[in-house]
Design a binder for these strands. Structure first.
Length: 281
DNA sequence: CTCCTGTCCTGCCGGC
DNA sequence: TGCCGGCAGGACAGGA
């Protein structure tokens, strides 16, 4: 589910709930999600004040004053719920992890498919955490630009669609925002990544940034199950030009009334790709 | 190296 | 109404 914009929104909501507060108790309601839950984490965090949360790609990291910390990934179906301190602490199906904060809300991780994971990582060695160490630049940061992107995809024979899903090339993109970014840049998702010229890399870079910014501003995209930590829905899904819009017009050309028949769906590397053959052909 | 496939798991939707 | 197959936002291992 959650790609960079959704994770960013979750992280922003978690800050007032967690930062500056102590972890009264960290509770695991089962032994594993995608991977075994870190047995030592509850003790390492108990009584510790959370100093900082940060997002890297689709990961949320949190560090306590003693240097202990965690890395959280929501996978496809993971969601975070923040329950007010005085509220009746409702338990829902698939509530796997609960952060009970001192004099504060309860932060609940719910993940039906359990593709997400929570791991322990110290503040000092998070740079060495494998998934983070190999991760490409933050698309909204200063380290991402057309030249960097061009170097990263140089010589790659894989379709540009698949390349952009590779977190080592650029961090945080998933299937939705890759489709939308390629659409905005008017690039055919089937093109070989290494074949893009400098101008196209520039357009793609700008498109990636704009679609992510727009999505964050719109509160992310709520499809099957993504919700904000308070249960509210994002509304960027209403702004999709191509994602899950087979047969419909993309909105920018007359693709729906010419013979091409609007947005098309193809499968690349086992994933759905949506594109407008008129604009991106 | 690079690229692709299969796999983890549950829920939901459409077809029969 | 109910059952079944297919599909879903991600990431990793393993094999070609």
């Amino acid at each position: 589910m959650p790609e960079l914009p959704e994770v960013e929104i979750v992280k922003r909501a978690l800050e007032p709930a967690m930062v500056g507060r102590r972890v009264k108790r960290l509770v695991f309601n089962r032994a594993d999600l995608r991977f075994p839950l870190p047995e030592g984490l509850p003790l390492a965090l108990q009584g510790q004040r959370i100093e900082r949360l940060l997002r890297r790609g689709k990961y949320i990291l949190g560090f306590a004053e003693n240097g202990a910390g965690f890395v959280l990934h929501l996978g496809m179906s993971g969601a975070v719920r923040i329950e007010p301190p005085a509220g009746t602490s409702l338990h829902e199906k698939h509530d796997h992890v609960e952060f009970h904060m001192d004099e504060g809300p309860r932060v609940v991780l719910n993940d039906p498919r359990r593709f997400g994971f929570l791991d322990a990582v110290g503040r000092e060695d998070c740079q060495d955490y494998p998934a983070l160490a190999a991760m490409g630049p933050e698309p909204l940061g200063n380290d991402f630009n057309a030249e960097i992107l061009a170097v990263a995809i140089k010589g790659r024979k894989t379709p540009i669609k698949s390349a952009l899903l590779d977190q080592r090339i650029v961090a945080g993109l998933g299937n939705i925002y890759v489709c939308e970014a390629l659409y905005r840049a008017a690039i055919d998702p089937r093109r070989r990544a290494g074949d893009l010229n400098a101008k196209e890399c520039t357009a793609l870079c700008m498109s990636i940034r704009s679609v992510l910014r727009d999505a964050i501003e719109a509160g992310g995209s709520s499809l099957k199950d993504y919700k904000h930590t308070d249960g509210q829905l994002g509304y960027f899904q209403h702004h999709f030009a191509v994602y899950d819009r087979v047969g419909q017009g993309c909105g920018a050309c007359e693709c729906d009334i010419v013979e091409t028949g609007g947005v098309q769906r193809i499968v690349q590397a086992g994933r759905s790709t949506f594109f407008c053959p008129e604009k991106q052909g």
